[in-house]
């Protein structure tokens, strides 16, 4: 038995305060979306109203960035799923030469600050004379999404690569049948979780995007512009809630999909 299974009061208070610090600011966004005050961030709000949701809905300048963000996130996630799964499949096999370097290469795009990824891509587009487009945004997003899918898939692959794959081959299935009937059903939830996290990460990304988007606006870039030069503050609040929910839901889903395994999603963003 542990001799002191109860935490000291100071520690409990410190932990509780730290968690409050992490969560209260996000809750405030929800409050501000209902404020009647339009020009300042006055607290407490002088009154509450639902009208900003309607105003935001009717603002024509919000929809194109939303569509672009969804489009970029979907394409980047699809690319990252293919590339991340391939590399996870290779890495879970026997040790081979250069294995450690490859893991470093996969990690680098999120280990180095986003501004470096962004500025590098910007330099490359400049050197090669590539014009900005939706695809230049996707190029950056898919690159840092690969590691998210990889992280989720590699642990599951490692567990799988043992005897059930051998059992399938042993019973006469070829490699493709084994992938379809044995690997995919067992890998599915890890891939779904990885895909959702990658989607959330891409949907929300702003730093790399500002370097690769040119004149186009994703929803986070739209928000950033509103932050720097506010026009209708409560509308921005409503958009913030939309962005928050669009990232929150897949992340929560990813957690529940991989819960209980050794590879719970989200440990390494």
């Amino acid at each position: 038995m542990r001799s002191d299974s109860r935490a000291p009061l100071g520690l409990t208070l410190g932990a509780a305060a730290g968690l409050l610090f992490l969560h209260v600011p996000i809750l405030l966004i929800f409050l501000y979306a209902f404020t009647t005050e339009e020009r300042t961030y006055q607290f407490p709000p002088p009154g509450l109203t639902l009208k900003w949701f309607a105003v935001a809905w009717n603002r024509a300048d919000i929809w194109p960035p939303l569509y672009l963000s969804l489009q970029v996130a979907a394409i980047s996630t699809a690319l990252a799923l293919v590339l991340g799964t391939l590399v996870a499949a290779a890495m879970s096999r026997a040790k081979f030469f250069g294995r450690d370097r490859i893991s470093l290469l996969i990690l680098l795009p999120i280990a180095l600050p986003g501004i470096i990824t962004g500025m590098s891509l910007r330099s490359a587009f400049d050197v090669m004379g590539i014009p900005f487009s939706t695809w230049t945004i996707v190029l950056g997003h898919a690159t840092f999404c690969i590691v998210i899918v990889f992280n989720n898939a590699v642990a599951r692959f490692r567990r799988l690569s043992g005897s059930i794959v051998e059992a399938s081959l042993d019973l006469g299935a070829n490699g493709f049948q084994t992938f379809r009937h044995v690997i995919l059903p067992n890998l599915g939830s890890a891939l779904l979780a990885g895909g959702m996290l990658a989607f959330a990460l891409s949907f929300d990304e702003v730093i790399v995007t500002t370097f690769t988007a040119g004149q186009q606006s994703t929803l986070p870039i739209w928000m950033l512009n509103e932050l720097v030069r506010p026009r209708q503050r409560p509308v921005t609040n409503v958009v913030a809630i939309v962005v928050f929910v669009t990232t929150f839901v897949p992340v929560l889903a990813a957690y529940y999909l991989t819960r209980g395994g050794s590879e719970t999603a989200g440990g390494g963003k």
Binding site: S163, I164, E166, A167, D170, G172, A173, V182
Partner: peptide, 30 residues
């Protein structure tokens, strides 16, 4: 997969996502 030799694995290696019937019938299915 082309050797008509089959194995009973040490940890049995049953497919966790299939029921017993599908496990047994796997070799025939493929």
């Amino acid at each position: 997969n082309l050797r008509n030799v089959n194995t009973v694995f040490q940890d049995y290696a049953l497919f966790p996502h299939m029921n017993v019937r599908d496990n047994v019938a796997y070799g025939l299915m493929v």
